[in-house]
Protein backbone atom coordinates (compact mmCIF):
# COMPACT_ATOMS: atom_id res chain seq x y z
CA UNK A 1 0.00 0.00 0.00
CA UNK A 2 3.02 2.26 0.34
CA UNK A 3 3.95 4.35 -2.68
CA UNK A 4 7.03 3.26 -4.63
CA UNK A 5 10.26 5.22 -4.36
CA UNK A 6 11.62 5.62 -7.86
CA UNK A 7 15.22 6.06 -8.88
CA UNK A 8 16.77 6.55 -12.26
CA UNK A 9 18.36 3.47 -13.71
CA UNK A 10 21.41 5.41 -14.85
CA UNK A 11 22.29 6.44 -11.36
CA UNK A 12 22.32 3.10 -9.61
CA UNK A 13 24.48 0.06 -10.12
CA UNK A 14 22.68 -3.15 -9.35
CA UNK A 15 24.65 -6.28 -8.48
CA UNK A 16 23.66 -9.89 -8.97
CA UNK A 17 22.82 -10.24 -5.32
CA UNK A 18 20.43 -7.30 -5.44
CA UNK A 19 22.61 -4.59 -3.99
CA UNK A 20 21.77 -1.15 -5.32
CA UNK A 21 24.58 1.33 -5.04
CA UNK A 22 24.27 4.93 -6.18
CA UNK A 23 26.99 6.36 -8.36
CA UNK A 24 26.68 9.50 -6.30
CA UNK A 25 27.59 7.74 -3.07
CA UNK A 26 31.13 8.18 -1.83
CA UNK A 27 32.70 4.89 -1.00
CA UNK A 28 36.19 4.89 0.39
CA UNK A 29 38.25 1.74 0.75
CA UNK A 30 35.82 -0.56 -1.08
CA UNK A 31 38.16 -3.52 -0.62
CA UNK A 32 37.28 -3.39 3.08
CA UNK A 33 33.52 -3.39 2.62
CA UNK A 34 31.27 -6.37 2.21
CA UNK A 35 27.68 -5.99 1.14
CA UNK A 36 25.48 -8.88 2.10
CA UNK A 37 22.93 -8.52 -0.66
CA UNK A 38 19.77 -6.46 -1.12
CA UNK A 39 21.48 -3.44 0.32
CA UNK A 40 20.56 0.03 -0.90
CA UNK A 41 23.17 2.76 -0.68
CA UNK A 42 21.52 6.01 -1.66
CA UNK A 43 23.02 8.98 -3.38
CA UNK A 44 25.05 11.20 -1.10
CA UNK A 45 25.88 8.45 1.34
CA UNK A 46 29.49 8.28 2.46
CA UNK A 47 30.80 4.92 3.53
CA UNK A 48 34.26 4.84 4.95
CA UNK A 49 35.93 1.50 4.60
CA UNK A 50 39.33 3.17 4.72
CA UNK A 51 39.10 4.04 8.38
CA UNK A 52 40.65 0.82 9.50
CA UNK A 53 42.98 -0.23 12.19
CA UNK A 54 46.53 0.66 11.24
CA UNK A 55 48.92 -2.15 10.47
CA UNK A 56 49.59 -4.51 7.60
CA UNK A 57 47.15 -6.91 6.08
CA UNK A 58 43.60 -6.82 4.89
CA UNK A 59 40.75 -6.11 7.27
CA UNK A 60 37.05 -6.07 6.77
CA UNK A 61 35.95 -2.78 8.19
CA UNK A 62 32.34 -2.59 7.21
CA UNK A 63 30.20 -5.51 6.43
CA UNK A 64 26.58 -4.95 5.68
CA UNK A 65 24.26 -7.81 5.35
CA UNK A 66 23.81 -11.42 6.04
CA UNK A 67 27.39 -12.23 6.88
CA UNK A 68 27.58 -9.50 9.37
CA UNK A 69 30.60 -8.33 11.26
CA UNK A 70 29.66 -4.78 11.93
CA UNK A 71 26.17 -4.03 10.79
CA UNK A 72 23.51 -6.68 11.09
CA UNK A 73 20.63 -7.75 8.88
CA UNK A 74 17.50 -5.68 8.41
CA UNK A 75 19.11 -2.43 9.48
CA UNK A 76 17.72 0.90 8.39
CA UNK A 77 19.79 4.03 8.81
CA UNK A 78 17.97 7.31 8.29
CA UNK A 79 19.03 10.23 6.11
CA UNK A 80 21.81 12.53 7.24
CA UNK A 81 22.83 10.35 10.17
CA UNK A 82 26.43 9.88 11.16
CA UNK A 83 27.08 6.40 12.48
CA UNK A 84 30.34 5.48 14.13
CA UNK A 85 29.15 2.54 16.14
CA UNK A 86 31.37 -0.39 16.96
CA UNK A 87 28.64 -2.93 16.36
CA UNK A 88 25.06 -2.73 15.23
CA UNK A 89 22.84 -5.74 15.79
CA UNK A 90 20.10 -7.12 13.61
CA UNK A 91 16.76 -5.38 13.14
CA UNK A 92 18.09 -2.01 14.28
CA UNK A 93 16.41 1.20 13.20
CA UNK A 94 18.32 4.46 13.30
CA UNK A 95 16.33 7.60 12.56
CA UNK A 96 17.15 10.72 10.58
CA UNK A 97 19.79 13.25 11.65
CA UNK A 98 21.24 11.03 14.34
CA UNK A 99 24.79 11.06 15.61
CA UNK A 100 25.91 7.71 16.89
CA UNK A 101 29.14 8.11 18.85
CA UNK A 102 32.27 6.03 18.61
CA UNK A 103 32.39 2.53 20.06
CA UNK A 104 28.66 2.51 20.64
CA UNK A 105 27.23 -0.98 20.89
CA UNK A 106 23.71 -1.32 19.56
CA UNK A 107 22.00 -4.59 20.36
CA UNK A 108 19.31 -6.37 18.35
CA UNK A 109 15.93 -4.76 17.72
CA UNK A 110 16.94 -1.44 19.25
CA UNK A 111 15.57 1.77 17.83
CA UNK A 112 17.04 5.25 17.84
CA UNK A 113 14.57 8.07 17.31
CA UNK A 114 15.14 10.90 14.84
CA UNK A 115 17.55 13.66 15.89
CA UNK A 116 19.20 11.66 18.65
CA UNK A 117 22.78 12.13 19.77
CA UNK A 118 24.29 9.01 21.25
CA UNK A 119 27.53 9.86 23.07
CA UNK A 120 30.57 7.63 22.62
CA UNK A 121 30.82 4.36 24.57
CA UNK A 122 27.08 4.03 25.04
CA UNK A 123 25.49 0.61 25.19
CA UNK A 124 21.99 0.34 23.79
CA UNK A 125 20.27 -2.79 25.07
CA UNK A 126 18.00 -4.96 22.97
CA UNK A 127 14.39 -3.86 22.40
CA UNK A 128 14.81 -0.34 23.71
CA UNK A 129 14.05 3.04 22.23
CA UNK A 130 16.64 5.78 22.73
CA UNK A 131 16.03 9.44 22.08
CA UNK A 132 17.23 12.89 23.06
CA UNK A 133 20.60 14.57 23.35
CA UNK A 134 22.38 12.83 24.97
CA UNK A 135 20.36 9.79 24.04
CA UNK A 136 18.50 8.18 26.91
CA UNK A 137 16.45 5.09 27.30
CA UNK A 138 12.88 6.14 26.59
CA UNK A 139 10.79 3.01 26.51
CA UNK A 140 10.70 -0.70 25.84
CA UNK A 141 9.71 -1.70 22.36
CA UNK A 142 6.89 -4.19 21.78
CA UNK A 143 7.69 -7.89 21.69
CA UNK A 144 6.91 -8.08 17.99
CA UNK A 145 9.52 -5.47 16.99
CA UNK A 146 11.59 -8.00 15.10
CA UNK A 147 8.70 -8.92 12.81
CA UNK A 148 7.73 -5.31 12.23
CA UNK A 149 11.23 -4.22 11.28
CA UNK A 150 11.66 -7.20 9.00
CA UNK A 151 8.47 -6.36 7.14
CA UNK A 152 9.33 -2.66 6.95
CA UNK A 153 12.82 -3.13 5.56
CA UNK A 154 11.62 -5.70 3.04
CA UNK A 155 8.87 -3.35 1.97
CA UNK A 156 11.33 -0.54 1.60
CA UNK A 157 13.48 -2.56 -0.72
CA UNK A 158 10.44 -3.55 -2.74
CA UNK A 159 9.33 0.06 -3.00
CA UNK A 160 12.74 1.18 -4.21
CA UNK A 161 12.17 0.70 -7.92
CA UNK A 162 13.83 1.86 -11.11
CA UNK A 163 11.68 4.26 -13.03
CA UNK A 164 10.81 1.75 -15.76
CA UNK A 165 9.14 -0.45 -13.21
CA UNK A 166 11.15 -3.62 -12.97
CA UNK A 167 10.06 -6.42 -10.76
CA UNK A 168 12.10 -6.10 -7.62
CA UNK A 169 12.40 -8.34 -4.66
CA UNK A 170 12.42 -7.97 -0.93
CA UNK A 171 14.87 -5.86 0.97
CA UNK A 172 17.50 -5.83 3.61
CA UNK A 173 19.28 -2.56 4.10
CA UNK A 174 19.05 0.99 3.25
CA UNK A 175 21.75 3.55 3.70
CA UNK A 176 20.04 6.64 2.45
CA UNK A 177 20.72 10.05 1.09
CA UNK A 178 23.41 12.06 2.71
CA UNK A 179 24.18 9.64 5.48
CA UNK A 180 27.64 8.86 6.64
CA UNK A 181 28.43 5.40 7.78
CA UNK A 182 31.80 5.60 9.39
CA UNK A 183 33.24 2.79 11.36
CA UNK A 184 35.74 4.30 13.62
CA UNK A 185 39.15 3.46 14.84
CA UNK A 186 40.33 4.15 18.32
CA UNK A 187 41.17 7.83 18.15
CA UNK A 188 43.17 9.66 20.79
CA UNK A 189 41.04 11.70 23.17
CA UNK A 190 42.13 15.03 21.75
CA UNK A 191 40.69 14.19 18.34
CA UNK A 192 37.19 13.69 19.65
CA UNK A 193 34.79 16.39 18.55
CA UNK A 194 34.28 18.97 21.23
CA UNK A 195 31.07 18.54 23.17
CA UNK A 196 28.44 17.81 20.51
CA UNK A 197 25.70 20.30 21.20
CA UNK A 198 23.34 19.90 18.29
CA UNK A 199 23.24 17.20 15.66
CA UNK A 200 23.91 19.85 13.05
CA UNK A 201 27.03 21.13 14.79
CA UNK A 202 28.35 17.68 15.32
CA UNK A 203 27.66 16.77 11.74
CA UNK A 204 29.52 19.78 10.47
CA UNK A 205 32.47 18.82 12.61
CA UNK A 206 32.53 15.31 11.30
CA UNK A 207 31.98 16.41 7.72
CA UNK A 208 34.93 18.76 8.09
CA UNK A 209 37.07 15.98 9.46
CA UNK A 210 35.96 13.63 6.71
CA UNK A 211 36.72 16.08 3.92
CA UNK A 212 40.14 16.91 5.29
CA UNK A 213 40.88 13.21 5.51
CA UNK A 214 39.66 12.71 1.99
CA UNK A 215 41.87 15.46 0.62
CA UNK A 216 44.93 13.92 2.22
CA UNK A 217 44.18 10.48 0.87
Amino acid sequence: MEPPIYYSRAEFIETDTGNKVSRRATIAGPQNIILGGKTIISSGAIIRGDLRRSGPGHAVVISLGRYCVVVGDYVHIGAASVVEAATIGNYVEIGKNCIIGKFTIIKDCAKIADNTVIPPNTVIPALSLFSGSPGHFTEDLPESTQDIVEVQTKQHYARFQPLDRDLVRSSLYYVPYNSHLLVSLPLPMNLLPVNPVTPQQCRNLLLGAASSLQSTL
Partner: peptide, 19 residues
Amino acid sequence: IEMLGHISAEAAKRSTKAP
Protein backbone atom coordinates in the same frame (compact mmCIF):
# COMPACT_ATOMS: atom_id res chain seq x y z
CA ILE B 1 -0.23 6.96 -3.20
CA GLU B 2 -0.35 8.03 -6.81
CA MET B 3 0.73 11.53 -5.98
CA LEU B 4 3.63 10.37 -3.85
CA GLY B 5 4.69 8.04 -6.63
CA HIS B 6 4.68 10.95 -9.07
CA ILE B 7 6.78 13.11 -6.80
CA SER B 8 9.30 10.35 -6.37
CA ALA B 9 9.38 9.57 -10.10
CA GLU B 10 9.90 13.21 -10.98
CA ALA B 11 12.71 13.43 -8.49
CA ALA B 12 14.36 10.40 -10.06
CA LYS B 13 13.95 11.82 -13.58
CA ARG B 14 15.53 15.07 -12.65
CA SER B 15 18.10 13.10 -10.67
CA THR B 16 17.93 15.69 -8.00
CA LYS B 17 19.57 14.70 -4.81
CA ALA B 18 16.80 16.07 -2.66
CA PRO B 19 14.60 13.39 -1.17
